[in-house]
């Protein structure tokens, strides 16, 4: 088997990882398959550029991020104006968030102890995944672009056509939700 065949096989072997990565951001199996297909084709076409300088997975994930962002940008453009796409709207309860009218916590955040220990637990990641999944789609997307893909705030604003203050509000809401969900389903559940 030639080196070229070997690289092609190694690229194909990353498919499952890439599909799960895309699925986490896009939440749609067909769309995830599409962007991964594009990624694998681009990777094969440009495999000469992969000189083993970085990990194969890192290189592929870099291509995949671009494909996901392109896809999201196109999807945003096709969104009918005035409609905020399926279930993204937050109910009135979310406007106030976990605060009273006077701006106090309705439930004071307690300590998480030493949360770093959780990072080694497979169950922790299942809870994290589920907590991201139940966020409104747009909040989850902005959050995952910022924190999982680690895109710059400015880049996200540009790609999604939103203002910096809009981004800050969405990230704040996403963090509040994820924190509350992780508290309920991991940090308190475990000791309870």
């Amino acid at each position: 088997m030639s080196d070229d065949d070997e690289l092609s096989n190694a690229i194909a072997a990353q498919r499952g990882y890439l599909v799960r990565y895309a699925m986490f951001h896009l939440r749609d199996a067909a769309q995830a398959e599409d962007v991964v297909q594009d990624t694998l084709m681009a990777a094969l076409a440009h495999r000469g550029q992969f000189a083993g300088r970085s990990q194969l997975r890192t290189w592929l994930t870099g291509i995949l991020k671009h494909k996901i962002v392109d896809h999201v940008r196109r999807r945003e453009r096709e969104r009918p104006a005035g409609l905020d796409g399926g279930g993204d709207e937050e109910g009135p309860a979310d406007a106030a968030g976990p605060f009273t009218a006077a701006g106090r916590w309705t439930e004071m955040p307690g300590t998480w102890g030493r949360p770093e220990e959780a990072l080694e637990s497979a169950q922790f990641w299942r809870v994290y995944d589920e907590c991201c999944r139940i966020m409104p789609a747009r909040l989850a997307l902005v959050f995952s672009m910022r924190e999982v893909m680690q895109m710059d705030s400015e880049e996200i604003c540009k790609e999604l056509g939103i203002s910096a203050s809009n981004l800050h509000v969405m990230l704040f809401r996403a963090r509040i939700r994820l924190r509350a969900c992780m508290t309920r389903n991991w940090f308190e559940a475990r000791h309870g």
């Binding site: 004071m108 955040p109 307690g110 998480w112 770093e116 959050f143 999982v148 994820l178 924190r179 992780m182």
Partner: peptide
């Protein structure tokens, strides 16, 4: 204390999110 906890916890969630792609390994 509550906001102190909140602030540390959202920073932890950033750390966790950066490591989260390892969950796609399964």
């Amino acid at each position: 204390r509550g906001c102190h906890n909140f602030s540390r916890q959202i920073e932890f969630l950033r750390l966790a999110s950066r490591k989260s792609p390892k969950m796609f390994d399964r």
